[in-house]
Nucleic acid binder design. Structure first.
Length: 882
RNA sequence: GGACGAUUAACUCAGUGGUUAGAGUGCUACCUUCACACGGUAGAAGUCCCCAGUUCGAGUCUGGGAUCGUCCACCA
């Protein structure tokens, strides 16, 4: 017979890699063929290829894995598409930093070589990322892995660009955009993070050209004075009414600029006069357009001062220029004062560099028409957010959408599919490079040098990964996908835009359910980051506790809508549970019957068996409900409670009676039944403790070939046994009560205790209790139990009173009557109070007529029980004091 | 300025209008009894942020307030 024993200590490292390999070798993560059940598809939020997985990925992928494994076991053809994102700015910077160490820039290599090198770096990192996903057990279909820059996805990107262009939704224009001087590229509005910075508000004097007076303006950026082309006041501001139409002479540069009136000026702020720098401030840019002001650019692409400034300012950083201009203004008497001032400064979310508003020619996507379709998708219930409240965020963003700047002045990315004829200037927007100009036949065609925003490929992810624009079988079968699992910080960047792309190009939202999970933070609630050094590496957890501990802990903690605060020790929780599962299984393996396991049909069920099967039914139902509502923490609780409290603490304990039997057939029955319940529990837990359950399962004498595609347990109505559950609940109460007594009077376990249980003959558990005498004795560690009538008097015994019963335990030493009486009086008082409160409730006609009948009935029953308990308590008190 | 969330045991958090509000960790006592000391058995621990309201009944729903947090917009 099977003598496979489990090692004494759980060492996840011993089997995790082997098990993962086993799953892959057998192609278990690939979708099943058509079987009449609806497919379940998920695309992974592609991690940056040059990043490393952090705990956020740990959470994200643990939840997806749980979800995907659950539906796969439910028999749905399931697909989880893996892949990575080329992450334009981030990756290019990784490579540029590498070059910088050799004293080189990307320009030393040239575009072609630089891109080649970046592909190499990508390959190195990609291997790491894939390895990490395997380590945490992600059941992704590696045969379908994609990369945002691979050929198929690039084709999708070009196709989308061309279609948008043809629909008039892509345009090129010269605008003020957010400029990252460190990466020297434009970025989108969403990519700017505003941080509060302590600066100064400088008050400066601009003299009127005629010398008759001066205007005092306030600014946080005095150096931009060099690009001023007007000074503005509010049209209704009486203080400055007389200045309309006049001009001022710009200090330092001497340029004459008009005083304009515009209602964008806030009269309350500063002096009510504002300098207007159309080339370096979004508000001023708009004002400049309204008033036809020149746009005077003063910055180089790297953020230093350059064009249109006096020679001595050229090449200075804005910080240096600020110092110099303040100095010059002071010397020339134009400086009034400076006061401390907190204000928001934009930073690039990728590079962290301070963003400059900067004039340049860029490509944009007109977003309004796309947003309307995406809003309709929500209205029509094509997409559902879990938790629902994120709908607000989505709608709010969609309704206030601005055009999307999609061109990036980088080399790493999808080069914009636009070719300009050098001869005639004709523009070709094509999915493939044209050979000749379609206007003048010239072959001198130059492709636009810029690349597209990384998110311009990410937003196509749910269908580009399935083969679009080709009409592939995968696309037909798995689009739209079933669920998207992601954190709330990329709802705008990614989720919203994917819905836009899906509705625009496929006429259908790309997924049905959107589960928005938490961010993982440290115990102080801070975002995990490299600079703080507070991050937890998921692999470190895998190494120390195992992948199952990682996943189970995260699933258990994953309540909707809250951030998860975690430190490394938090994972001990999952580790302990995994250990418990391991040891329980090990114990059962050690007790396999020599004659072999019985067939299911040969099993004979007693009360404990019927109880655990009924409890198992309950657990299965809870899990089904919770999984369908994406309530992962409920699932975690259900699994934990069922396995630990029901299966281990009670069922295994109760079975020890039979397992220790000298009668082989009894032992064989017990061991077989335990094993079947364990086997089913392992399947139940597999989506959440994948490696461990697979490892154990394969060593059981009866088991599925693998758990990945094994059928998920289903609740079987014939197993429901509410009356047995009620009996058992009463039994547990009795046992706990006696154990408490034991503990209170520190009756050592080796000492046999003398026990009398008083029970009404009409007690609903009367027969059940008496039938379970042996079990009761074992579970409380006594050898003899006398059944008596309730309310008897037993001098020298302490008593615990339950619902419908009382237990007397004889203690050797004298009972501290005073102490015991006090405690008892307290309990009596509490119970009386309770009875009183229920009485009040029942005496209230509003309650008896207003509340549902079963609630009223339940209250009555509880009252009666409490009343009975009270009687017994009082009787005991009397006895104690006599 | 706008929106959203949170506030429950010492800590981290669950909690679906209906028992006397729960878990994990930590703490206390006892137990190395033959699966597990990453364990067992018990115990202590609560103004469910505050105020009003709705309801037969509120930790749960409504309104107001306080504190903390997040996002969006933004004052040069």
């Amino acid at each position: 017979m099977n003598t496979n024993e489990l090692p004494k200590v759980l060492e996840p490292k011993e089997f995790e890699d082997r098990i993962y390999q086993f799953w892959m070798d057998n192609h278990l993560f690939e979708p099943l063929p058509e079987n009449g059940k609806s497919p379940f598809a998920v695309v992974i939020p592609p991690p940056n290829v040059t990043g490393v997985l952090h705990m956020g990925h740990g959470l994200n992928n643990s939840l997806q894995d749980a979800l995907v494994r659950y539906w796969r076991m439910k028999g749905h053809p399931t697909l989880w598409v893996p892949g990575t994102d080329h992450a334009g700015i981030a990756t290019q910077q990784v490579v540029e930093r590498r070059l910088a160490k050799e004293g080189k820039t990307r320009h030393d290599l040239g575009r072609e070589n630089f891109v080649k090198l970046t592909w190499q770096v990508k390959e190195e990192h990609h291997a790491i990322i894939s390895q990490q996903l395997k380590k945490i057990g992600a059941s992704v279909d590696w045969s379908r892995e994609r990369f945002t820059l691979d050929e198929g996805l690039s084709k999708a990107v070009r196709e989308v660009f061309v279609r948008l262009y043809e629909r008039g939704l892509v345009y090129k224009g010269y605008y003020l955009v957010n400029w990252d001087p460190s990466a020297q590229t434009a970025i989108a509005d969403d990519e700017v993070e505003y941080k509060e910075v302590q600066g100064f508000l400088y008050h400066l004097r601009y003299p009127l050209s005629d010398g008759s007076a001066w205007l005092e303006i306030a600014t946080t950026r005095p150096e931009t004075l060099l690009g001023d082309s007007a000074v503005a006041v509010h049209p209704d501001d009486e203080r400055y009414a007389s200045f309309g139409g006049k001009t001022v002479r710009l200090p330092v540069v001497g340029r004459e600029i008009p005083v304009i009136a515009d209602s964008f000026v806030d009269r309350e702020f500063g002096t009510g006069v504002v300098k207007v720098t159309p080339a370096h401030d979004p508000n001023d840019f708009e004002a400049g357009l309204r008033h036809n002001l020149p746009q005077i650019n003063i910055l180089n692409p790297d953020g230093t001062l350059g064009p249109n400034v006096p020679e001595r300012y050229k090449g200075l950083t804005t910080v240096k220029a600020r110092e110099l201009i303040v100095q010059e203004l002071t010397e020339q008497g134009f400086f009034v004062a400076q006061e401390p001032h907190k204000h928001q400064v934009g930073h690039c979310y990728r590079s962290g560099a301070v963003v400059e508003p900067y004039l340049s020619e860029q490509w944009f996507v007109r977003m309004k028409p796309l947003a309307e379709k995406a809003l309709a998708a929500l209205r029509e219930d094509q997409i559902r957010f879990y938790p629902k409240r994120w709908e607000h965020t989505y709608v709010n963003w969609m309704e206030n959408i601005r055009d999307w700047c999609i061109s990036r002045q980088l080399w790493w990315g999808h080069q914009i599919p636009v070719w300009t004829c050098e001869s005639c200037g004709h523009l070709h927007v094509k999915t493939e490079a044209p050979r000749n100009c379609e206007k003048c036949s010239s072959d001198r065609l130059i492709q636009d040098e810029d690349v597209l925003d990384t998110w311009f490929s990410s937003w196509l992810w749910p269908f580009s990964t399935l083969g679009w624009p080709e009409q592939t079988p995968d696309l037909a079968r798995f689009y739209p996908t079933s669920a998207l699992v992601t954190a709330y910080d990329i709802i705008f960047f990614w989720v919203a835009r994917m819905v836009m792309a899906g509705t625009e190009f496929l006429g259908q939202a790309p997924f049905r359910d959107i589960y928005i999970h938490q961010l993982v933070r440290d115990k102080q609630g801070r975002k995990m980051s490299k600079s703080l050094g507070n991050g937890i590496d998921p692999l470190e957890i895998v190494n120390e506790f195992g992948a199952d501990a990682l996943k189970f802990t995260l699933v258990y903690l994953s309540a909707q809508g809250q951030d998860i605060l975690l430190d490394k020790d938090g994972f001990k929780f999952g580790s302990k549970f995994a250990n418990k599962v391991w040891n329980a299984s090990r114990y059962l393996m050690m007790n396999l019957p020599e004659e072999g396991i019985l067939e299911r049909s040969q099993l004979e069920y007693g009360p404990a068996d019927r109880w655990i099967l009924s409890r198992l039914n309950g657990a299965i139902r809870s899990i089904d409900t919770a999984m369908q509502a994406y309530k992962f923490n409920d699932v975690g609780h259900t699994i934990y409670d069922f396995f630990w409290y029901d299966f281990c603490d009670w069922y295994i304990e109760a079975s020890k009676l039979d397992l220790a039997s000298t009668e082989p057939s009894i032992k064989r029955q017990a061991a077989s039944k335990l094993l079947y319940v364990l086997e089913e529990s392992l399947r139940l837990m597999h989506p959440f403790l994948s490696f461990l359950t697979e490892e154990i399962s394969q060593k059981l004498p009866v088991h599925a070939p693998n758990l990945v595609q094994a059928p998920y347990p289903e609740a079987l109505p014939e197993r429901d046994a509410p009356e047995v559950e009620a009996h058992f609940a009463a039994l547990q109460e009795l046992i706990r009560g006696i154990r408490t007594l034991r503990s209170e009077f520190t009756l050592p376990p080796e000492k046999n205790i003398r026990l009398i249980v008083g029970l009404d003959s009409d007690h609903p558990e009367h027969d059940f209790f008496r039938a379970q005498e042996k079990l009761i004795l074992m579970l409380i560690g006594a050898q003899e139990l006398t059944w008596g009538a309730s309310g008897s008097v037993h001098p020298g015994a302490v008593t615990v009173v339950g619902r419908g019963w009382e237990a007397y335990v004889f203690v050797k030493d004298l009972v501290d009557v005073v102490k015991e009486s006090e405690k008892l009086s307290k309990t009596i008082e509490k119970t009386m109070k309770y009875v009183q409160s229920v009485d009040n409730k029942l005496a209230n006609p509003a309650f008896t007529s207003g509340a549902p009948a079963e609630v009223v009935e339940a209250e009555r029953t509880k009252r009666e029980e409490a009343e009975k308990t009270l009687k017994r308590l009082k009787a005991y008190l009397v006895q104690l004091q006599s």
